[in-house]
């Protein structure tokens, strides 16, 4: 049998070109792809939502979101992704699928999405203006504050979107997209952001 060597590589490896893009001058939009994270989908088994919630509380010290919210602990973010389900985003294996499997035995089904999704962080003065072109949901701070989350579509592509803590007084939007759709959505986002000027980078920090 042939030996394979698996290089872990972002689906945006080719598409992402770090540096400036679009209009010159002060960039209105920052796009950062966050790489090498652990992501686990947790879905309650039929009739076991209560048990799943209890297990999550015991594990993370906070209640997993039951509505459209993302909540953070010191080393994990729990993001609502639909009824009786949420995503666990973390780094370094502490809350990876092997660590979480025994926690949710009998109450939830787990699915490792670590290498199945791409995580893009969108910030900058024009972040919301840019996202408004590709999203049909209202991202105004009055309705989409820090910690708000949504399962929605952008450019006909399913995404999980949530608002992170502000950085330098400005909103930060994180979005998770299926790996195979990431390049397509990336180009759509670049087209949408070009008029504001874009700073492109990638990072290993979840922040």
């Amino acid at each position: 049998m042939a030996d394979f060597s698996w290089d872990v590589r972002s689906p945006l490896d080719r598409a992402l070109v770090a540096g400036a893009y679009g209009a010159q001058g002060d960039a209105g939009v920052s796009l950062t792809e966050i790489r090498n994270f652990d992501l686990v989908q947790v879905m309650a088994r039929r009739g076991k939502a209560g048990e799943m919630a209890k297990a999550a509380k015991a594990r993370f010290g906070i209640a997993a979101p039951e509505t459209r919210k993302a909540v953070g602990t010191s080393d994990a973010t729990l993001i609502w992704s639909g009824p009786d389900q949420f995503l666990v985003l973390s780094k370094g294996g502490k809350h990876g699928i092997d660590a979480l499997a025994p926690v949710f035995t009998g109450s939830a089904s787990l699915s490792d999405q670590s290498h199945a999704r791409v995580l893009i962080s969108v910030s900058g003065e024009k972040a919301r203006a840019m996202l408004a072109k590709v999203s049909s949901i209202d991202l105004h701070p009055d309705v989409f504050g820090v910690g708000a989350a949504a399962a929605t579509s952008m450019d006909h592509t399913s995404v999980t979107l949530w608002r992170n803590n502000d950085r330098d007084g400005q909103a930060v939007f994180n979005l998770l997209v299926f790996g195979t759709f990431a390049e397509s959505l990336w180009h759509t986002i670049l087209d949408s952001a070009a008029e504001y000027g874009v700073t492109i980078s990638h990072s290993e920090e979840l922040a």
Binding site: G47, A49, G50, D84
Partner: peptide, 10 residues
């Protein structure tokens, strides 16, 4: 029926 187990029941 069946969508969102918590809301609809078993």
């Amino acid at each position: 029926a069946g969508a969102g187990a918590a809301k609809v029941g078993a």
